[in-house]
Write a protein that binds this DNA or RNA. Sequence first.
DNA 1: CATCTAATTAAACGAAGAATTAAATTATGC
DNA 2: GCATAATTTAATTCTTCGTTTAATTAGATG
Lengths: 221, 221
Amino acid sequence: MATKRPARRPVGVRPRTPGRPAAASPELRPRLLDAALACYVRDGIAATSLRAIAREAGVTPALLHYYFGDATQLRQAVVDERVLPAIASFRSTLPLDGEVAALVAAFVGGVGALVERYPWLPALWVREVLCEGGALRDVVLTRVAPQIPQALAAKFAQAQREGTLNPDLDPRLLVVSMMGLTLFPAASAPIWRSLFHASDIGADSLRAHTIALLDRGLGVG
Amino acid sequence: MATKRPARRPVGVRPRTPGRPAAASPELRPRLLDAALACYVRDGIAATSLRAIAREAGVTPALLHYYFGDATQLRQAVVDERVLPAIASFRSTLPLDGEVAALVAAFVGGVGALVERYPWLPALWVREVLCEGGALRDVVLTRVAPQIPQALAAKFAQAQREGTLNPDLDPRLLVVSMMGLTLFPAASAPIWRSLFHASDIGADSLRAHTIALLDRGLGVG
DNA sequence: CATCTAATTAAACGAAGAATTAAATTATGC
DNA sequence: GCATAATTTAATTCTTCGTTTAATTAGATG
């Protein structure tokens, strides 16, 4: 006869007894969204189970099902209410009708501000957009990409026609280069910080370095 | 009584009858390594099961176990015999004792040649080194990083002291910038190629663009 | 030709973990 | 007090995993 183990619970986690909680447990739903986001960022969306999110939030899987329905709907809620708003806040800061230098500076500064406010964004971006099979690739390509990169590339092409941008550059690749100079350093910060013992490099130094590199690189000089 | 399903096999795949194969099935082992690598690149190392590799190679899981032992040893073999050699081939092309401009050009060209020869490398790098929890992060940080990035940063710092490199740049961040300008475009190529309908941009155009950007960006002028 | 060995599949095993559901439990609001 | 909302418990049903044992066949050795 099999000895029925008493379903050992992870130490230190107390999921509470059943029943409705006493008085206003304030705002549970946003906390659940945050827990899901944290799991997505740490482990990847595909590798995150409902149980893992429940564990992260100190709650049972059944409760997640009660709030969001199935796993797909929960994922959708996180994307709609956490990820897309973050990206939208970035788009609105780009001055697409000014000089190229101002646009570039705003882009670099905007990415810096973005990762300061949403530190989880670069890692999520890398895993879920950049990686093949990433769960956000489709959403980003259809709802973000047509607005930001296309507009930037058009602006750069126009600047080249007007002679205010180095003609040896490719306007489309320049968009890629700018992302590589901002998103990549943000996503790899944990690596290079420890590799170079560079805890002295903050957001300001990074921005100054990037703009110094781009300012000269783009000039027609 | 449960109806015992006849273990339906994926259509089109014929795993052969048992028994030793007729005559030289030439070099099975490297083919198994390639299959494993393909799975790692497509799905990620953590998400790749022995069974998936076996399916990819048209072989049974038991055979993988026969050749490599357990899953960990197979992964180790792929890293040692496929991934690390690719990276080592890159390191040996960097002229660390010449001018900065030549070093930068060699870096950009070297990454270009590397991804032409090992097209799977950027995607693998992004998922397994850049992503938190990536399976290769440790190996790269201990066996690759101390040699390449440290040497580059030292070289840049020296050039700044000699007045041949823009003093507004940070020598350590410049290493990060160069990786962002090469590795990131390579890894995201499938995305921007389709996004910009840029099938006309080949390896040469990319290299020319990147060097044009860096050449001016680094100058003291 | 007989036998030993090497390479391969088949099949089964046991463990783990998944999503979802049904039922029990408790507090709140009317 | 009674209906309802919020929560856990426990069960159900699947899938998948890595590994092992046994069977099978071809080559190698004598």
